[in-house]
Design a protein around this nucleic acid. Sequence first.
DNA 1: GTCTATAGATCGATAGAC
DNA 2: GTCTATCGATCTATAGAC
Lengths: 185, 185
Amino acid sequence: MPKIVRERHDAIPALAEVFREHGFEGASLSLISERTGLGKGSLYHFFPGGKDEMAAAVLADVATWFESNVFAPLRNDADPRKGIGHMLTAVETYFQSGMRICLVGAFALGDARDRFAESIHRYFAAWRDALGDALVRAGLERKEAKERAEEIVAAIQGAIVLARALGEPAPFRRAMRRIRAMVMR
Amino acid sequence: MPKIVRERHDAIPALAEVFREHGFEGASLSLISERTGLGKGSLYHFFPGGKDEMAAAVLADVATWFESNVFAPLRNDADPRKGIGHMLTAVETYFQSGMRICLVGAFALGDARDRFAESIHRYFAAWRDALGDALVRAGLERKEAKERAEEIVAAIQGAIVLARALGEPAPFRRAMRRIRAMVMR
DNA sequence: GTCTATAGATCGATAGAC
DNA sequence: GTCTATCGATCTATAGAC
């Protein structure tokens, strides 16, 4: 498929897919070049820091997307339950019912963890805290809310692992349904 | 640390640690050689199929360990709740409260998934089914038991992701405590 | 900005001496 | 069985023409 790349940002989606499919180590520059439609010269023009900078840019883009589409609604929606419902819908679409992995979660399990430790930590802490806030506003006691938030974020990550391992989206979909039921109760 | 390697099997623990720490792609033969204490010649003597065969041997070893220490107790313990309690204790030790990742889960998220799809599928299906059996014997209806088993296996995997991402064992320990409470209820 | 060519290191894997 | 030496391929990254 043809790609129009005029600035660095245009290459990010293709970069993200390559890192998701092959991991940090598995994403070779030749593969990246092929999938972005950019020669190595262009890649190093946009990302002088090489593969590290490409992955960092992808992580930053993911963080921005989640901040806008998941965390902010959790914190700001007048009805916290609506914010959580919004999160679940967004997450189900984003992860394609578990058939598309969470790049940050995969990095957390792999060799790239130390390299991007701060970004990874920030992503999960922000998610957990935003969800915890929503649960407090929904009426839960603070300590209970924090633990529930942690449980839900972990459940989503685990559902992705299981869905990918079994090769079917059903475990992910069931997990989303369980979370929805738990929250709306 | 010195290693005594007389047969193929003696190299498996070191191999497993290298694959766990660096992933399939990240585990280079020179790193494997260093950590097992075996030269490349010896490695290819024991594993003629190269890195693929090494990883396959590790996965087989993991499967055997879980079969003996986790799945069999789940299926055979006269008191199914005791079997589940045994599973949780074994898992907490094995994964070092989330500071040691699940190799099969990490492979499921990474590039190695396609290569070892069958082993990965079998591992998670066996775990889910053995736990489901135990829950049926504990009195749950079959459909409810299957869903609970899936939920628990996913919760463990998600707890590992979160613990690794946040760099602390607490999320994993809390998840184990929640599962225990859910089952014993 | 984008390309080709290529450097320099490291990859997985093999050969052959011992 | 284990080692050293080394193969060809591939890796990340750079240089320089256009």
